[in-house]
Computed example of a mutant assay.
Amino acid sequence: MTDLHPRPRSVLVVGGGAAGNAVTILLRRAGIAVELIEARPDWNATTGSGITLQGNALRVLRELGVWEHVERAGFSFGSVGVTAPDGTVLFASDDIRTGGEDLPATVGMQRPRLQRILIDAVRASGATVRLGTTAHSFTQDADSVTVRFHDGTEGRYDLVIGADGLRSATRTAIGIADRPEPTGMAIWRVAVPRPAGVTRTDLAYGGPAYIAGYCPTGENTIYAYVVEDNRDRASIPPDSYADEMRRLTAGYGGQWPDITRNITDSSKINYTWFDRHLVEGPWHRGRVVLIGDAAHCCPPTLAQGTAMSLEDASVLAELLTTRADGDGSLDDLLTEFRARRLPRVRTVVEASVQLGQWLLDGVRDADVPGLMERTMTALKERP
Rank of each mutant, 00 (worst) to 15 (best):
M1R: 05
T2W: 08
R7W: 07
P8G: 09
L12E: 07
V13R: 00
V14A: 07
G17T: 06
G17F: 04
G17W: 03
A18R: 00
V23G: 03
T24Y: 10
L26G: 01
L36C: 04
I37D: 06
N44A: 14
T52F: 12
G55L: 02
G55H: 09
N56D: 12
A57P: 01
V60M: 11
L64R: 08
L64A: 11
V66A: 07
E71H: 14
G74E: 09
F75P: 03
S76G: 08
S79H: 15
G81H: 03
G87D: 04
T88E: 14
I96K: 01
A105T: 11
V107F: 09
M109T: 11
Q110Y: 00
L114Q: 06
Q115T: 15
I117S: 01
D120K: 15
G126K: 13
A127P: 06
Q140C: 14
D141W: 04
F149K: 01
H150G: 13
T153P: 09
A163W: 05
D164L: 05
L166Y: 10
R171H: 02
R171Q: 04
T172Q: 09
P182Y: 10
T183G: 09
G184A: 14
R189G: 02
R189A: 01
T201Y: 05
A204Q: 02
G207I: 07
G207S: 07
I211N: 06
A212C: 04
N220Y: 01
N220I: 02
A224E: 08
E228G: 10
E228Y: 01
N230H: 12
R231P: 04
R233V: 07
P237C: 06
R246Y: 03
R247E: 04
T249K: 02
T249F: 11
G251R: 06
N262E: 13
T264H: 07
D265P: 00
K268T: 13
I269H: 05
T272N: 10
W273N: 11
F274A: 05
D275V: 13
R276T: 15
R287V: 12
L290M: 04
G292H: 10
D293V: 06
A294C: 00
A303C: 06
A307F: 07
A307V: 06
L310S: 04
D312R: 07
A313M: 06
V315C: 03
L319Y: 09
L319M: 14
D325E: 14
D327L: 12
G328D: 08
G328R: 14
D332I: 02
T335V: 03
T335K: 09
E336K: 11
R341V: 04
R341C: 07
V345F: 12
V349W: 06
E350C: 08
S352W: 08
Q357W: 05
W358Q: 07
L360F: 05
D365T: 09
A366Q: 08
A366W: 06
P369M: 03
E373A: 15
M376S: 00
P383E: 11
